[in-house]
Amino acid sequence: MTNAAGITLDEVSLALGEHCVFQKLSVHLEGGQWHSVLGRSGIGKSSLLRIIAGLQQPDSGRVYSQTGEALRARIAYMAQDDGLLPWLTARQNVQLGPRLRAEKAQESDAQVDELLDKVGLSPWADALPAVLSGGMRQRVALARTLLEKRDIVLMDEPFSRLDAITRDELQGLSFELLQGRTVLLVTHDPMEALRLSHVLHVLEPGSPSSIQSMPLETQPQRAIDHAEIATLLPAVWQFMKDGRRTPVPA
């Protein structure tokens, strides 16, 4: 997929009750790249994602793409909870988007088969989610996201419930299949963010939270012992912890 739209958040503010989450937060996410939002639990990572997805209205500010088109129509969403409907088979869950929009299922049948094959679930196409493992369920969710053919993909900690090996496999698969799209991955795992991202956005602790963006120099899908990861990890860790030091090396 080419010419994926970028996303701009312009002076976005959000308060949840008494707690001010963001105050005039601005950030630009370049199109066609993997962006990761890092931060501690409860800092507002998911709120940021929900604002971009249009699931939550900010108190002020705006979110837009450079193309000027409505963002909602360009976004696919993949959450921590795979959101599979338990009464539908894996195949039917992949087809959920067209089903909900009452689009003709026949058009996507071949694509669904292809996607299920890509995520390695062809033999499980007619299985109900209850019999699938956590990794398999996330694969179905990934195939469902891909079928949406949106150029912006928002991922809210999609790998956090998986074991280390399955997580590594799914991260690689997701990166490969989502290439060329604008991906925003919310995670609390610095290693995951450092391995997969073109740009890292770290939410600084505090009320309101501020954001620090740092582009990475090498191409994503870095190995665990990659030099850039080794350089940045301590700084990212420190910044997530107390936000006093800038994570960008001099």
Partner: peptide, 22 residues
């Protein structure tokens, strides 16, 4: 489940479809 409803909203499902299918 909020996850199901969020998902349906991002898939541009109408309120009637969400009611009947989810």
């Amino acid at each position: 489940s909020a996850a199901m409803l969020d998902l349906a909203a991002t898939m541009n499902a109408s309120p009637t479809t969400i009611l009947l299918q989810i």
